[in-house]
Simulated scan of single mutants.
Amino acid sequence: MRVGIVGAGIAGLALANQLHQKGIEVQIYEKASRLEPVGAGFTIQPSGFKVLEGTVDTESVLATAALVNQSQMMDAEGNLLAVDIMESLSSGAKSYSIHRGDIHEALLKDLSHGDVVKTSMRATNINSDESAAIIQFEDGTSSSFDLIIGADGIRSVARKFVSPEAKLNQSHGIAIRTLVPRSRDDLLFHNFRAWMGQGKVVLTYPVRGGEFLNIACYTDGLPQIDGSWSRPVKPDWLRNEFRGWDPSLTSLLARADSCFSWNLADIEKLQNWNRKRVVLVGDAAHAMVPYLGQGANQALVDCYELSNSLGKVADDQGTLAEALQEYEQSRKHSVALIQQLSRKAGHIFKSDFDGNRDIKNLEITALLKKVSAVQTGSA
């Protein structure tokens, strides 16, 4: 079985590693000219880390990670809330904050042989019949496979073939990311901190062995509208957005010298995740807003389930169609719930406190119980 993967992000690289372990031939196509991770830091939660443990050398990954099993949640003025989001999401296990580049490096290590990853290959169309699936590229060439996996993110080309009815919901505002050097004063706080309210959310946590703090700001405001998905943002614009907030936050933003933003979007539950010989994973199948840090983690679980199903085909224990249906059925329901809860989390986190933090604590606690129920399969 020959498999073509569109997209060399975390999902595409993780899946390639897993399929390689099962003796399945894989070719990855990436539109970028260089393999540079999009974004900066993210949290790898227990479900995602469990998949990584069977995929890469996690010892090297953890060398630059920070344990974030606990968190401080605050309102805009810096008043503490009586909830701990990371403790709830970790469910007694371990969560880590890490730079995407460190994950990419680990995932690429075992794919460095031959020519597994081809860059500067922008897929423009994907089609399939009963005998083969074909990727057409911008340069006029094409490649044929037994199976094509769309790991090409929120604006997926593969999704246009699998579920052409899907539409992006781009009403969620923007995310702005920056990295700042970590100072001695930063060590006085828990590793993961968040501020919320007034239509905005800010998350901070260490990356690159604690050398830097990753700052992610989510706001409904737009620094500029030029039709692009991602764009640089002037640090002064960001600082002005949070003028008057907790001094410990504004002092962090004062150290930012380079920021970029991208549109926040998600999609509704798709009718199908697979069609003929094409299947979707990660954001291509279930793009979600980032308020619960579930995007990469859910994508990694997708990869685990799909690789296991395809492994059965490689071992002559079932057909490709059966494997794709098994994968979709194993993931579709729970991921749809996580999408809904992520959307709801954004609404709760951004809403004004109206002077009553107890109500906010109860809302967040109830939400996190629902997330835990989905993750444990009891929802």
Rank of each mutant, 00 (worst) to 15 (best):
G4L: 02
I5K: 00
G7V: 04
G7E: 08
G12K: 12
L13A: 06
L15F: 09
N17I: 13
N17R: 08
N17H: 05
K22N: 07
G23F: 12
I24K: 00
E25H: 11
I28S: 04
I28C: 07
K31H: 12
L35F: 10
L35C: 09
G54W: 14
V61E: 09
A65H: 15
N69C: 01
N69A: 03
S71M: 10
S71H: 13
N79Q: 12
A82Q: 12
E87L: 08
L89D: 00
S91D: 14
K94H: 13
Y96L: 00
I98N: 08
R100I: 15
H113P: 08
V116T: 12
T119C: 12
A123T: 06
N125C: 07
S128D: 08
S131D: 07
A133F: 01
I135K: 01
F137A: 02
E138F: 07
T141N: 12
S144R: 13
S144C: 13
F145M: 12
F145N: 11
I149R: 05
G150V: 15
G150M: 12
V162N: 11
V162P: 12
I174S: 04
A175H: 09
S183N: 08
R184A: 11
F192Q: 06
W195I: 06
G197R: 06
V202S: 00
V202P: 07
L203D: 05
T204I: 04
G209P: 04
E211G: 06
T219K: 07
Q224T: 06
I225R: 08
G227Q: 03
S230R: 14
P232H: 03
P232G: 01
V233W: 06
D236R: 02
R239T: 00
W245F: 13
P247R: 15
L252H: 04
A256W: 06
D257P: 10
S261G: 09
S261A: 11
S261P: 02
E268A: 03
N272L: 11
N272P: 00
N272E: 09
W273M: 01
N274A: 06
R277N: 09
V278G: 06
V281W: 01
G282T: 10
D283W: 10
D283I: 11
H286S: 03
A287I: 02
Y291G: 04
G295E: 09
Q298K: 03
V301R: 13
Q317I: 02
G318Y: 00
T319V: 12
A321Q: 12
A321Y: 02
A321L: 11
L324K: 01
Q325M: 07
E326V: 14
Y327R: 03
E328T: 15
Q339G: 01
R343E: 02
G346I: 02
I348C: 05
I348H: 07
K350Q: 10
D352L: 09
D354A: 08
I364A: 14
L368R: 13
S372T: 08
G377T: 06
G377I: 11
A379E: 04
